[in-house]
Amino acid sequence: MEAELGSGREELIKNIEYTHEILLSAEENDKKYKKIFKNPININPIIHIILFLFLIWPYGDIFGVFFGPIARMLENVIPLGFLVDLVAIILTIITYVILYNLLLHNLNKKYTSYHNDKNKVVLSELQQTNEKLHSDLAQYSIVPLKYRHIYCTEKLIDYLKNFRADSLKEAINLYESTEQHHLQINEIKKMQALQADTNQELSSVNASLDHLGRMQKETKRSIESANSSLSEIRESTRY
């Protein structure tokens, strides 16, 4: 009986280890694919702003020279500077959109297309390898789809090798209970941190209230002192 259990455990561990190795290979394969495959280059928004401002300056100068007389004729209706700036901004936006779409977008498209065509064979091989790995998982792995990730298979192998579980079901249940326990601990830590922040805020409020209380007492004493001084002045002026 023990031999049968041992044999069953060994077969189970081998299958999960096989699943784990395939998952590692699939992850490495995905990294290679992403490294080779070129996505279109995205321009940082800050670069967009710099290029936009760079285009505004020549437009402002051009309109200041050529349309200055017309703008001065309308100076009483619309301020000169405002008119020139408004036209410059509108034309800059139109020019920037046209240049971006015609030049950068097309160049970017051609570059990525050339790069991906150049590595078409390698990309195709990686894609075929990836499909085979996932096909092997679906065909040979006894690990349910939900638990086919590297962290989980590591834990399942550990539970079985260290005799914390005797079957796949027990290992999965132990994994779920452990993860649930970790979630509860994290929630408790969050609640404790929130409570600490609340206590700190309450302490700050209490300190402010104490300060206000002291100020109120000092104000009351000042008023009483002033009233006493007034009373003495009144008494002295009587005579």
Rank of each mutant, 00 (worst) to 15 (best):
N206I: 15
I13P: 01
M73E: 11
S204W: 01
E17N: 08
F67D: 01
N173C: 10
E201P: 03
G81W: 00
L53A: 04
E17G: 06
T178S: 13
L99Q: 02
S225A: 14
L12W: 00
L194T: 10
N101F: 08
N119Y: 12
E21G: 12
T129C: 00
T153C: 09
Q139I: 10
I78K: 00
L133H: 05
K38P: 00
L145A: 07
H20E: 06
Y18Q: 04
A193F: 07
I233M: 14
T178L: 14
K132D: 03
N206F: 13
V143N: 09
L74F: 14
S229I: 14
T112K: 08
K34N: 13
G213A: 09
L104M: 08
S135M: 12
E218Q: 11
S113R: 09
L51N: 10
I172R: 01
L209F: 06
N199F: 12
S236P: 13
A193Q: 09
T178C: 07
G68Y: 02
S208I: 08
L156H: 01
I47G: 09
N44T: 05
L137S: 02
K32C: 04
V143T: 12
N162T: 12
E27W: 07
Q195W: 06
S124L: 15
S229N: 14
S231M: 12
T237G: 10
M191P: 05
